[in-house]
Amino acid sequence: MKDKAGREIDYLRISITDRCNLRCKYCMPGDIETTDMENLLTYEEIVQVTETAAALGIRHIRLTGGEPLVRRGCVDLVEKIKNVSGIETVGMTTNGVLLAEYAKALKEAGLDSVNVSLDTLDETEFQRLTGRDELNAVLAGINAAKEAQIPVKINTVHYQHLDWKSILDYTNRVQIPVRFIEMMPIGYGAAYTGGSNEELFRQIEECYGNVSEAGTVRSREGEKYSADIRDLSYTEEKQQSGKHGAGPAAYYRFPGLNMDVGFISAMHHKFCRSCNRIRLTSEGYLKLCLCYEKGVDLRAVLRDPGKKQTLQEVMKKAIFEKPAEHCFEQVSEMTEHNAMVRIGG
């Protein structure tokens, strides 16, 4: 369905837990209070929301957390969602710690892709950032997903001391696309200084060659134009090296690399005009934009014996009112103050 800005909303990110086996400094740095299980949506309720979302035009689902693989039965949920009529793809975002254990089963359940969060390849820095000594487990998980023939992408947060060169050398060697994500002022992330993807783009060009040499792309009107290396906002036409899922990354191929590099640049290059996604928190709150608290409590609807409104009516009305754009550049205007782990990655 379309929202009031005329955008086609076809992508739903579902957080299935607020628990995690890492303690990343910009997400969940300490032992924060987690939600009681009875207040989380059950898998049956998640499937019910997915079925309703599919009826409204949602085609792509991504399971997130917390860390989705720490919730028992996650593989079975993947299979159930994959079998919902109208759902075309089911992906997962994970920190990778348990991925080696579950990769084969996830493939058999129908998982279409997995995004693995990886901000450093240095063991000491990894432990500093995540609070755990699990780098080797993450790398083993990535290898296991590849062996299971699940398409893998790496998510790397562009934090202040990012060693992007080692990340690119690794992803180029293992032939996995990487996306650099600008730090957003959500939850604990507001206390951290992130880098600009625009500056990172320039640095990568200096090392691996000028993207403009890779050719041309087409505008929506069909006219050819040189790739604007400073415009890192997403459009389908800017993905010079093919489609990489339903998300907001703008992908480029640098001459000195043999895999695609994506940039999710929410801070410096808004992609709100092409935003096609909504989020469901683990407690059942349907969020329309990361920046704002505005949304609707679907758990209350699901568990209301009176059923004053149908789930489809509530979801349709909420999606139509999706905000036109975020206000990360004006933090004082934000109304969302929950930690990212409460919202869903």
Rank of each mutant, 00 (worst) to 15 (best):
W164D: 09
S226R: 15
N210E: 11
T35K: 07
D18F: 05
D3G: 06
A250N: 11
C289K: 01
G65T: 11
R59T: 15
D228P: 06
F180D: 02
V84P: 03
L286P: 04
E221D: 15
G131I: 12
E198M: 05
C327W: 02
L121G: 04
G344C: 08
R230G: 15
A190E: 07
A246V: 05
L139T: 09
E205T: 04
L288I: 07
E321H: 07
A249F: 08
Q240S: 13
E182M: 05
E67R: 11
L63F: 10
M183E: 02
K107V: 14
K107C: 14
I150S: 02
R59N: 15
A246Y: 06
I343P: 00
V314L: 04
Q309E: 10
K25M: 11
V78L: 02
L162A: 08
I150K: 02
Y170N: 06
L200V: 07
A5H: 09
E336G: 00
E67H: 11
D119I: 11
V116I: 13
Y26C: 01
R59S: 15
E313S: 10
V152Y: 01
E182P: 02
D112Y: 02
T17K: 03
G86I: 04
K294M: 05
V314C: 03
D119T: 11
N21M: 09
G215S: 08
L139W: 03
F201C: 08
S265F: 05
A300P: 02
G256M: 07
Y252W: 11
K104I: 12
H60Y: 12
N115L: 08
K165H: 13
R71T: 06
K317W: 04
K238F: 13
Y192I: 09
V331R: 13
K153I: 03
Y285F: 13
D297P: 01
I150C: 03
E44P: 10
C24H: 13
S274D: 14
I186W: 05
N95I: 09
M37S: 15
I264A: 03
G195A: 09
I154F: 01
Q149K: 11
I61R: 01
A53G: 12
E123S: 15
L232E: 08
R23K: 15
G30M: 06
H337C: 07
N338P: 00
R173P: 00
R72K: 14
N143L: 07
V217T: 07
A54H: 06
E205N: 03
A53W: 06
A191P: 00
L56T: 05
A318W: 01
A214C: 12
E221K: 15
Y11A: 09
N172A: 12
F271M: 12
E206V: 00
G222C: 11
L200K: 01
V261Q: 03
Q330P: 03
Q48T: 13
L232N: 12
E123Y: 04
G195P: 05
A105S: 15
